[in-house]
Structures are given as C-alpha cells and as structure tokens.
Design a protein around this nucleic acid. Sequence first.
DNA 1: TAATAAAAGTGGTATAGACAACTATATGAT
DNA 2: ATCATATAGTTGTCTATACCACTTTTATTA
Lengths: 246, 246
Amino acid sequence: MKEAKVNKESPVPLYYQVKENLKEKIESGVLEPNERLPSERDLENKHGISRMTARRALTELESEGYVYREQGKGSYVAEPKLRQALSKLTSFTEDMQDRGLEPGAEVLNKELITVEDQLSDKLMLQSGEKVFLLRRVRLADNEPLAIETSHLRNKFCPGIEEFDFKDRSLYETLKREFGINLGRAEQSVEANLASKFKADVLNVEKGSPMLTTERLTFLTDGETPIELARSTYRGDRYKMLVELRR
Amino acid sequence: MKEAKVNKESPVPLYYQVKENLKEKIESGVLEPNERLPSERDLENKHGISRMTARRALTELESEGYVYREQGKGSYVAEPKLRQALSKLTSFTEDMQDRGLEPGAEVLNKELITVEDQLSDKLMLQSGEKVFLLRRVRLADNEPLAIETSHLRNKFCPGIEEFDFKDRSLYETLKREFGINLGRAEQSVEANLASKFKADVLNVEKGSPMLTTERLTFLTDGETPIELARSTYRGDRYKMLVELRR
DNA sequence: TAATAAAAGTGGTATAGACAACTATATGAT
DNA sequence: ATCATATAGTTGTCTATACCACTTTTATTA
C-alpha cells in the first residue's frame, strides 16, 4: 500500500488527517485487530508533524474505540466490537449500509405544513413556524422494509422541499446543503400490529408485528429539536441493535 | 464556596484535579446548566498551570458530556441529559423504578443447566461449564409486564442458585454478594406476536404484539460475557427508550 | 550460557509559545 | 443613530521541549 502523508496546504487539521488515515486502514482491514500501530514518534517523523499532533490523532482513535494504548508497549488496533459507536444516531441509509444492505426509497408524500398540539410541543415550534413533512417507503435490497415519516423544522433548511429524496439521504442533505450538524436523539421503540395501509405498503398481512419508533433529533447544542421522525419497520425483517453501558 | 487550587505535590495529574474540581461543582449544582465556566486562561492563572493543561481538563469534561464549548465564546455547563450515561444498562428493577413503577417478580423456574449450540457460543462457555437459568414473570405495580429468562455463567457466582429472586434483583445480587461489576451489553430488539404460553402468562390475547429483546451482558473488561437474557414485554404496556448520539 | 545492567523505545504529563478563527465590545466616522 | 473598524477575549491548532514511568531490546558481566 502506498504510504500517505498529510497535506499541509489543506484546511483540514493535521491531527484529523492522520486520524482518518489510520481509521481507514483499520476499517478496511489493512490493519487488523491487535496489530501494532506506528508509535507517536514514528508518525511524527513520517508526516513531519509534532509528536503532540500525532498523539492527538492516536488519543482520539482510542476514545472512539478503534485503538487501545499501553504505556511502554505501544498502540494497537482494538477488537471491532469495542469500536462500535454507542447507539449511534444514523439515518436509514447509514443503518442499511452498516448491515451490508442496499438502501433505497420511494417518496409517498412531501410538503410544507403547519402542525399543532403534541407534535408542535415536542418540536418546540414558534408561532407560524412551518414544518417539512417527508413520508417515504424505505427499501433494503429493493424490498420494502419500513415506512418513515419525517417532520423537519423548515426554518433551519429553507428550500429543502425542492430536493428529490428518492436517492438522497435527508441527514446528508442537511449537512451538505445547509451546514446542519445533528447532535443526539431520543428514541422510543414499541411493538404493535400492522394496519391495513401499512400492511399493503410493506407487503405483509394485516395484523403482522411491527416495530415502531419515534425519534426526536436535536442539534449539536443538545437541546434544540430539529426533527421528529416516526418509523414503522416490518417485525419479521428488522431487528434493532442497541449498545448499553453500565 | 472556598476556591480550591490544585495540589502540585499530589501524584494525581494536574489536569485530572482541575477536571474533577469542575465536575464536582457541576454535579452538586454550584454550576448550573448553561452557566459559563472559567476560560482556559482563567484556569491557567488561578491554578498556576499551563493553558494546555487547563485545556485538557475542559476538553475531557466536554467529551464526557458535562460541558459544551464554542470557539470565541467560551465553555458552558451542559444540560443534565447530555451527561447521562447513554442507553444505560439497567436491570428490570431499575428500569421500573426509573419509570416510577413498583417492580416485582414471580419465579417460574430456577436451575443449574448445561447448554449447547448458539447459547453456548454466545456466552463463550468452556467445556462442562454450568449455567444458572432464572425465568421470571416481571411485574409493574403488580401487573404482569414481561417474561424474563436469564442465563448466567455459574462460574462467576457459584451458589447463586440458593438465592430467592422473588424480591431480589439479579444484578444487585451479583454486585453485593459476588463483587461482580457489569460493564456493557449488546441488545437486540424486535417485534413479534404472543404465543399461547406467553399470552396466558401476561394476560393478553394470543397474537398480541410483543417487544422481544435479547441481551448479552459483559463484565467491565468489555469482552467477557457473563449473562444472556431474553425478555418479552407486552407491546401495549411497554415502550423502550433509547438515547442516540451522532 | 545465563543473569544482570544499560540503552533504546513507548506512552503519559506538563510547560511555553505562536498563530488562526471566531465572538463580543468599544470606538470612530458618517 | 447607524455602520465600519479596532480592540479585547475566547477557543482551536500546532510546534518544540522536557521529564517521568513503563516495556523491550541490547550489551556487559559472571
């Protein structure tokens, strides 16, 4: 493999470049679990950076679970399960990709609306504030898997209703086109039975088990709600995975 | 409040002392959510330390969720929910107490067994190793809510089968009687329909929606499995709550 | 040859300083 | 009064250096 060096002309911070370069090697399997990584001083010499910068890259990989470090011994690639992000906030697209499935969508409905009551309270809407509603059937390997309805506060992304969300991730669009970074979400999960409408859309029998979620998503400040999304997944084809910490 | 200064004679690293001093003020309520913290340079002057040391204290508080930082503005105490442990590993007892419900149990079955195949693989059992099986109906305010079946590696808690788990938490017993601390768990969640047996035990109709989980719990090293628990909750009375991070 | 000591290498902590990018406030000009 | 500019203050990134504590490797001694 061709040895990369950081690009000092790039606006991307040096420590971040080193970190991502190592992360990519770990994720692609070039560097395997328990394999030894370059030392801080090796990275310093190879990239022509300060040791503290190299250290920052390795320390952040450690806190993200990709690496474990032992004084006097070195830095090593961690076992994959330790590097999983804890209950990661992902879009449907990212979720499917993580599972090795091909994500897709069919747009059922897309409009700017005004909402009231419970939904308005949860999103902490101001008077007259519009909401962008996007309802899609979500596909995995071209089979219907879920119905997803997003309610997005339009004031944060004016004009988003012009985009076509058949082949486009909502979260990616927020980031790329509007510079919006999401921080965290609160999600509830419950079981219920498929209504006629949902059964038809998802190709199951009426009364089949459904896993239903409601997610309230916040910006990076952790308290400004931006989206409320309700999703219904086929119970026979979707299993949610959660990581718990003591 | 008396202003503390770091103790330079202590073997405890300086950045750690500063961090814990601030954390204590945040947790005790002396510093409130969204209240502004001392700047890096303030801490540098006050404690007679370098700015990078002060910075490290603040940065670690940020990564632990106690603080948020904005370039040009300063560091602020985060809202409490940001500092909550993400998706906490709790027992049924703790879960019910968190919801303001009174937890209870009826023991259906309790025995030492030998298991094979998938279960043995997941628990990484060694040849001949015994497993403690505990099956209970879990009550909330004296109403059946879930069926919970725990498979616990007996080698970590020999003699646990002698305890009565009608009014006793399994996780509390592990901690109190055997000094076992749990670290994390991986849990799957799915929806299915109630079998005849489960419907009868939980007082619902056959075919009612059920939320089913399987949890593999690890010790503090993060990789030694100790318990595999399968639970089935009434879909009409239980909603799981999950916190997600981006 | 084996045991011990020294040297080399590794991560951990800390200092000092510099510059960049951003926010908030004060000052001066219109 | 409003707008533009300057100043002060804050976090973000980076460099260079030093010393400590630990592990591994190499050299020396018995």
